[in-house]
Computed example of a mutant assay.
Amino acid sequence: MAWTTQQTKAEQFRVRRECAERVPAFVFTATVRLDAVLGAFNTRDEREVVADPAFLDRVDQLD
């Protein structure tokens, strides 16, 4: 499961998915333990973090 550390980037992905696929999309926040991080990348200024979803703490949906 991929995440970004930038809320504005997450919102851009949400809007793009809703427009392209015509399905509802949502943005979530989560606390991620360091040992759950499988990789981190900053290609295209996306600040992406790949995390094992089994080890996410406190996942909340944003409005």
Rank of each mutant, 00 (worst) to 15 (best):
E18N: 07
F55A: 13
V32S: 04
T43H: 13
D35M: 11
E46S: 08
A10E: 05
R22T: 06
L34R: 11
A51Q: 05
F26I: 00
A20N: 13
R47L: 14
A36C: 09
D52E: 12
R47V: 02
A54I: 00
L56Q: 02
R47S: 12
Q7V: 04
D63G: 14
D60K: 08
R58G: 10
D35Y: 13
G39W: 08
E11A: 10
W3Q: 00
V37C: 07
A40K: 03
V37S: 06
F41D: 14
P24W: 06
Q6T: 01
T8H: 10
L56V: 11
V49Q: 04
L34P: 08
A51S: 15
V15L: 10
T31P: 00
T8K: 09
R22L: 15
F28D: 01
A51R: 06
Q6H: 01
R47G: 06
V59S: 07
K9C: 00
R44E: 15
R47M: 14
G39P: 01
D35P: 13
A20M: 14
L38S: 08
R33W: 07
F28I: 05
V23W: 03
L62T: 10
P53N: 09
R58D: 14
R58F: 06
E46M: 08
L38N: 08
T43G: 09
Q6M: 03
R44L: 12
E48T: 12
C19E: 15
L56H: 03
Q61I: 02
F26G: 00
V27H: 05
R16D: 08
L56Y: 06
A2Q: 01
V50W: 14
Q12P: 00
A2C: 05
C19W: 06
A25L: 10
A54N: 11
R14P: 03
V49E: 04
T8Q: 08
W3D: 01
T43S: 11
T8N: 08
D52M: 02
D52K: 00
A54K: 09
T4P: 04
V49G: 03
E11C: 01
P24S: 14
F13A: 10
R22W: 10
A10W: 07
D63E: 13
D35L: 11
M1I: 03
V37A: 07
V59G: 05
R14F: 01
T29A: 09
V50L: 15
R16T: 03
A30E: 09
T43Q: 12
D63V: 10
R17E: 09
A25M: 08
P24R: 14
A54C: 07
E46D: 15
V59E: 13
D60I: 04
D57A: 08
V32A: 06
R17Y: 13
N42T: 12
F28E: 07
R16S: 12
F55T: 02
F26Q: 10
A36F: 12
R47P: 00
T4C: 02
D57S: 10
R22A: 12
P24H: 11
R16W: 12
Q61V: 03
F13D: 05
V49S: 05
E48Q: 11
R47A: 11
A20E: 15
T4G: 02
D52F: 02
T8M: 02
